[in-house]
């Protein structure tokens, strides 16, 4: 049975794919996580997580165009599926529920 919730890295990747939109392939996804999420990432780790998410049908992928600046290799574009959006919402809900009412998390200097 697949895990119902996402790891923090999987959640970040799904959110980054959603933020980037139609042009979501490895480079902009990694850049989004680094710049917005403030977390340095390895492209290999991003792809390993995306492969895992695709096996769980939380993302889908399609092969794009090959360009000279990529050494003649095609891009692989990712999109979050409806099931993926549900998983993000469920994980967010669980995180919000777990963190609510914790005194240490309240206030600016917590």
């Amino acid at each position: 049975m697949p895990r119902p919730y996402l790891t923090d890295f999987e959640l970040m990747i799904l959110l980054a794919v959603l933020r980037v939109g139609d042009a979501a392939y490895g480079v902009p996804i990694a850049r989004e996580i680094e710049e917005t999420g403030g977390r340095p990432v390895l492209l290999g780790a991003v792809y390993a997580a995306l492969d895992r998410l695709e096996r769980r049908r939380l993302v889908s992928s399609r092969v794009g165009e090959a360009t000279a600046e990529r050494g003649g290799r095609a891009k692989r574009y990712f999109a979050v599926t409806a099931r993926g959006v549900r998983a993000v919402k469920e994980t967010q809900r669980a995180l919000t529920a777990l963190s609510s009412g914790i005194a240490a998390l309240k206030g600016r200097h917590a």
Binding site: G44, A45, Y47, A48, T67, E69, K75, R76
Partner: peptide, 30 residues
Amino acid sequence: ALAGDLHEEFGRRGSAWWYWRQALAAVAIH
């Protein structure tokens, strides 16, 4: 596609060290 992404990013960054690290990590992870 991963190799293509690394190629593209190398063109932007121009750092051999960065490429070595990313490529070795990608092989190890996969």
